[in-house]
Design a protein around this nucleic acid. Structure first.
Lengths: 359, 359
DNA sequence: CTGTTAGCGCGTTCAT
DNA sequence: ATGAACGCGCTAACAG
C-alpha cells in the first residue's frame, strides 16, 4: 500500500488552481463568502476527491477553537451517567457537534487535579455531569480561562448555566403518588454527602408539607457517612450495603414505614435487596420508589417504580444551550446565572409500589 | 480579576534570560539533554512559577503527536463497558497517560462513520473496546493512517494487537463449576450476532467436551435475532425481554436444564427475572451463572455467581501494551498480529448457583 | 472576486 | 552549552 501522505490545503489549492486563501474561505463558509460559485464548485470537488479536511492543530493554533465539547463525568460505572453520556452523544450528533468524554484523574482533592490545561484548551466548552466532591475548583478555573460550561444533572444548587431535572418536582410526584396509594408513613433515604443530593432533604420535607403529612425524623435516613468517591474500592458499599442496612433498620423500628422513597434507583434497588433478605416483600409489605429511571430499574426484579429523568430532552437542551453560549460573545456573570433550564420529570409505574396493607 | 493572558514559551525564555530553544529542550528532556544543571533549574523555576505548559496545538503541529490515547467505546449505558473505561482511566493515570473517550456517531454502517479524521489525528493511539457491529472499517482506516491500536475485550477473534479475557477458559471454568456441583443438563444462552460472542458457541461446546458431557442442541440458545445497536430504543429488549423469554421456553421444554450458563451478566439477570416470573426459583430450582462480573451482578437479588474479568489487570495491560507499541517504531503486520495478551478470568461464587435438586 | 502574507507557539536543525 | 531561525498548516487581514 502506498505510503499515506497527508494532504494539505496547499495540495488542494494547487490542484484546483487557486490560492490557499480561497480554499480556506470556501471551507469555513461564513454564510455567503464572496466566492464565485464556479470556483467554489471546483474547490469543493477537489476537496471531496482528496477527502481533505483541515489539520485540526493548525486551525486551532490560529483560531483558538476546536469545535469540540468536553464532557466531564465523574463516574461511568453506574447506570445513570453512562446513559446520560450516550444521550448527550446522540444529541451532539443530531446537532452536528463533536463530543469527547474526559474522566477525573482521582477522587481526592476535589476534581481539580483532573483538570489539566491541556484539556482546557482542547475544548471549546464543557458539560459538567452530575456532581463529584465538588465542581467549585473546576468552575473557578473555567472562569479564569473564560471557557463556557453548562452543568448537567448536577443539582439545582449549581451556580452558572445549568440544565437539570426538576428535583423538587420529582420528589413531589413521588410523594404524591405514594400518598394517593394510601401511604402515610413514608421514609426517605438519601446521601447528603453527595453534592447532587445536598438539598434533597429540604425538597422531601417540602413535598410532605404540601400534602400536610408530618415529618418524622426517624424516617429520614441520611447515608452521609460515605463521600462520593467512585474510584475507591469501597465506594460500592455506599450504594449497596449501606442502603440495605438502612432499610432493614427502618423496618425493625418501632413504627416502620409503609413506603420508602429513595433518592436514586441504585439506593432503591439496594433497599429492596436488604428487605428481601429479611423476608420483607416488595411491594406487598412495603413499597419502594426510586428516582432517575436508571437502567437498573428495568433490570431488577421486581421492576422499579421510579421518577424518570427525560434524558433525551436534557441532553439536547444541554448541547443546544452550550452551543448558544458559545455563539454569543461573552455574556457577563449575571446573565450566565440566569440561564437555567429545568426539565420536568415524570412518574413511571412499574412493580415496586402498591397500596399499604390493611393494618 | 486580571484578564488571563496566555503564557507562551517566549515569556518563559525572556523571564529566565535564555532562548526558547533551551526552554523547549529542558521541558522535553530527552534523558540528559545537554543543558547546564544551573540554567535548567532556572528555567524550571520560571516554568513552575508561571505554571506554564506548552500549547498543545503548536506542539502537535510540529511533532504530530499529542500524547493522548483515544478510547473508542460503542456503548456506555450498560454495566460493563463503563466499568472497563473507568479501570482504563485509573491505569492511564497510574502510567501518566492522557485518555479521552469517543463514542460512535451511530449504529448503522458499522462504526465507520464515527471515525472522523479529526479524531484520527487527535490521538496517538486507540483502544478499541468491546465490539460493535464491526471494527473492520475502523481498523482498516487506522492501518492506512498508521495509527496504532489495541483491541480490548473485543473478542479473541480480533486481528491485530489485543488484550482479552480468556473467554475459552471462562466458559470452561463456568461449565466445570456447574458440573462439579452435579449438573449434567447445562443450557447455554448467548447472542452470535454480537461480534464479541461470535465464537462463544464453539467455546462452550469445547467446555462440554472436556467434561465428556453431550451437547444437546435444544439447550443451546442463540438470541441472534437482534444485532448490537445500543443506540436503538429497542436495543434493551435484546438483553432483557428476549433472554427472559428464552429462559422460560427452556424450562417449559420436555427436558429442562438444571443450570443455565449465560454469555454475560446482563443475560443472566434477565434470565433469572424471567424464571422468577414463572415461579421458578434460583438457585433452588435451577442454577444460573453469568460472565464478566458486571456491576449488575452484585446489585441483583439473588447476587449472581459469575466469572470475573480482571478489569484492573486488563486495563493496565492495555495501556502498557499500547504505550510500548507507540514507543517502538512501526512494527510490521506480522509482528502486530503476534501481540496477544490473554488474561485468565476467575470464578466468583455468589448466590445463583447450587447443586441440582434430587429428582 | 481573488492572491499574498503575517503570524499562531512550538520543536528542531544548524551555527556558534 | 546555548542561540537564531525555519516552518509545521492554517486563518484572517489586507491588497489588488
Amino acid at each position: 500500500m502506498a505510503k499515506h501522505k497527508k494532504v494539505t490545503i496547499n495540495d488542494i489549492a494547487r490542484e484546483a488552481g487557486v490560492s490557499i486563501g480561497l480554499v480556506s474561505r470556501v471551507l469555513n463558509d461564513d454564510d455567503s463568502a464572496r466566492v464565485s460559485p464556479e470556483t467554489r464548485q471546483r474547490i469543493l470537488k477537489v476537496v471531496e476527491k482528496r477527502s481533505y479536511s483541515a489539520n485540526l492543530f493548525a486551525a486551532a493554533l490560529r483560531t483558538e477553537r476546536t469545535g469540540i465539547i468536553g464532557v466531564l463525568s465523574p463516574n461511568l460505572s453506574g447506570t445513570f451517567l453512562g446513559s446520560l453520556t450516550m444521550a448527550l452523544q446522540r444529541a451532539a450528533v443530531g446537532q452536528g457537534v463533536e463530543l469527547l468524554v474526559a474522566l477525573p484523574k482521582s477522587d481526592s482533592q476535589g476534581i481539580a487535579s483532573q483538570f489539566e490545561w491541556m484539556q482546557a484548551m482542547l475544548f471549546d466548552g464543557f458539560l459538567l455531569l452530575s456532581n463529584v466532591l465538588d465542581y467549585q475548583d473546576t468552575i473557578r478555573k473555567l472562569q479564569i480561562i473564560e471557557k463556557p460550561y453548562v452543568s448537567v444533572c448536577a443539582g439545582l444548587h449549581m451556580q452558572g448555566p445549568l440544565v437539570n431535572s426538576d428535583d423538587v418536582l420529582a420528589l413531589q410526584i413521588a410523594t404524591d403518588y405514594l400518598y394517593e396509594l394510601g401511604h402515610q408513613r413514608i421514609a426517605f433515604l438519601y446521601n447528603s454527602n453527595w453534592p447532587l443530593e445536598r438539598n434533597y432533604n429540604d425538597y422531601f420535607l417540602h413535598a410532605l408539607d404540601a400534602r400536610q403529612l408530618p415529618a418524622r425524623p426517624e424516617l429520614l435516613i441520611d447515608i452521609h457517612d460515605a463521600p462520593y468517591t467512585p474510584q475507591s474500592p469501597h465506594f460500592q458499599d455506599t450504594w449497596t450495603i449501606t442502603p440495605a442496612k438502612a432499610a432493614q433498620g427502618l423496618m425493625r423500628g418501632p413504627n416502620p414505614p409503609t413506603a420508602i422513597l429513595c433518592s436514586n434507583d441504585g439506593f432503591a434497588v439496594a433497599c429492596i435487596k436488604g428487605l428481601m433478605r429479611m423476608g420483607v416483600r416488595v411491594p406487598e409489605d412495603v413499597s419502594v420508589i426510586g428516582y432517575n429511571n436508571e437502567l437498573i430499574s428495568t433490570l431488577f426484579y421486581p421492576e422499579l417504580t421510579t421518577i424518570r429523568q427525560p434524558l433525551e430532552e436534557i441532553a439536547s437542551t444541554s448541547i443546544g444551550l452550550l452551543r448558544s453560549i458559545l455563539g454569543e460573545e461573552k455574556l457577563d456573570r449575571s446573565e450566565m446565572a440566569a440561564i437555567r433550564r429545568i426539565i420536568p420529570p415524570e412518574l413511571v409505574e412499574r412493580e415496586s409500589c402498591a397500596p399499604p396493607r390493611a393494618r
